[in-house]
């Protein structure tokens, strides 16, 4: 599925829930279902700055795609990480860099989970894009792949 198809799927999932408690419950479920992060990556190197809760994000680059894994000590934040991973993990650096994450607005995450609320949603997005930029710079071949898209 493309990034936009996954985003549309998430928007669809959230559209049936009309209250915030329901949305939080959903994020909590996403958080619980998120695959584990190797404890060896729960280090300062992979910690995202600027979150009140701790978020560790680990990227792995293989065969032109980036696989993200993450964990957080707070469950709602972990759920947000899980959503971002669902959208961006398994994609090429070019796709990640160019992704327009409209689902954040559509499901109402931006207004209620802004960076001033210290949950680090935007820090996570920025970090994922930075990793993608770094991998693309180190592997110019992936930029080529992007052009062919």
């Amino acid at each position: 599925m493309t990034i936009n198809e996954i985003q549309d799927e998430i928007i669809e999932d959230f559209s049936v829930i009309d209250d915030w408690m329901g949305k939080y419950n959903m994020l909590i479920d996403y958080g619980r279902e998120l695959g584990p992060l190797d404890p060896g990556f729960k280090t300062k190197d992979f910690l995202i700055e600027g979150c009140q809760s701790k978020v560790w994000l680990h990227p792995e680059y293989e065969n032109g795609i980036i696989t993200f894994k993450a964990d957080s000590d707070a469950l709602i934040t972990k759920g947000i990480a899980a959503l971002l991973i669902r959208v961006l993990s398994g994609k090429t650096p070019g796709e990640i860099i160019d992704a327009d994450l409209y689902f954040i607005d559509k499901v109402g995450l931006r207004q209620n989970l802004s960076p001033t609320r210290a949950n680090g949603l935007l820090s996570m997005v920025r970090q994922m894009k930075l990793y993608a930029l770094a991998f693309r710079a180190k592997n110019p071949g992936s930029a080529q792949t992007l052009k062919e898209d």
Partner: peptide, 21 residues
């Protein structure tokens, strides 16, 4: 077993303003 931030976020949605951190 529950992060302070999770607690604060849910209380907020119930209209209860507390501080976490």
């Amino acid at each position: 077993g529950i992060h302070m931030y999770d607690t604060g976020m849910v209380l907020d949605k119930l209209g209860i303003a507390v501080r976490t951190g």
